[in-house]
Computed example of a mutant assay.
Amino acid sequence: MEAEPQDRAREAMEVYRRLVELHGARPLVPRRDPLHELISTMLSQRTNWRNEDLAYRRMWERFGSWQAIRDADVAELTEVISPSSFAEAKAPNIQRVLTRIFEERGEADLGFLADLPVEQGLEWLLSLPGVGLKTASLVLLFCFAKPVLPVDTHVHRVSQRVGLIAPRLNPTAAHAPLLALLPADPYVLYNFHMALLRHGQKICVFRDPHCERCPLPDLCDWYQTHRAGHPPQEENA
């Protein structure tokens, strides 16, 4: 029988409590300028953080300003950000985003998003080329403390295995139901995101999750189906 919404919300907060206890809480303070956050998150799509960071640093070292990145030869920009996967698609999108921002705002500044209601901010960001719901939500939460929840592959995997969202729900579709389970508190939403992200990177990995190190087995649908009552197989000699 499917859990009632209030039961699932209680479970979401218990998952939050246990994973924050395990991985630690962070203060919600902007770590990067909003435009830096936006472009870095675009570079991070289907790319690990090391290559995202390398691509961003190479881009900035080569061109030195947002105007120069906007006006660069697209083939050169593609080569510079090549540590990031799908650079041939990301380079023109980055230039289109920068062109749009300069045309509308007159400068490389996203500070106006602080004054927009959440839905308007999401709508504006989602209208940018190459920007999806995860990226838009991340910029609004990380930079402006808006009550939204970015759902990346790690947050999605952990939430799905535990049973907070339906098994076949994709990451984009998971944003609304996960957000509905949590209080509209940016600090909680931020640390829920960060705790599940860390958990997915370190313990609840894609292949062969480390359930012996996880504090959630009694809550986890995946564990109950695949591991509970199943003794570990012995390795071949």
Score class of each variant (00 low, 15 high):
M1T: 14
E2W: 06
E4R: 13
P5C: 09
D7K: 04
D7H: 04
D7R: 06
D7P: 00
R8W: 01
M13V: 04
E14A: 08
R17F: 01
H23A: 13
P27Y: 03
L28C: 07
V29K: 15
P30T: 02
R31D: 05
R32C: 00
D33E: 10
M42V: 13
M42I: 15
T47C: 07
N48K: 13
N48Q: 14
W49C: 10
W49K: 13
W49H: 13
R50Y: 08
E52Q: 15
D53H: 06
D53Q: 04
L54T: 08
Y56P: 00
W60H: 07
Q67M: 15
A72N: 04
D73Y: 10
D73V: 07
A75C: 08
A75E: 14
E79F: 06
I81P: 01
I81G: 00
S85E: 10
F86A: 03
A87F: 12
P92N: 04
N93D: 09
Q95L: 09
R96V: 02
L98Y: 00
R100W: 10
E107R: 15
P117T: 08
P117M: 12
W124V: 06
L125R: 00
L125I: 06
L126R: 12
P129V: 02
G130E: 04
G132W: 04
G132E: 08
L133M: 09
K134T: 01
A136H: 01
V139L: 03
L141F: 03
P147E: 11
V148T: 08
P150V: 07
V151I: 13
D152H: 05
H154K: 12
V155W: 06
H156M: 10
R157T: 11
S159I: 09
R161T: 03
G163S: 11
L164K: 02
I165D: 00
A166L: 14
P167S: 06
L169H: 04
A173K: 13
A176V: 05
A176W: 04
P177F: 08
A180C: 14
L181A: 03
L182E: 03
F192D: 00
M194L: 14
L197N: 06
R198A: 15
G200A: 15
R207T: 15
R207D: 10
D208Y: 15
C211M: 11
P215N: 09
D218V: 12
D218S: 14
C220D: 08
D221Y: 05
D221T: 12
W222T: 08
H226L: 14
A228T: 10
H230P: 07
E234G: 12
A237H: 13
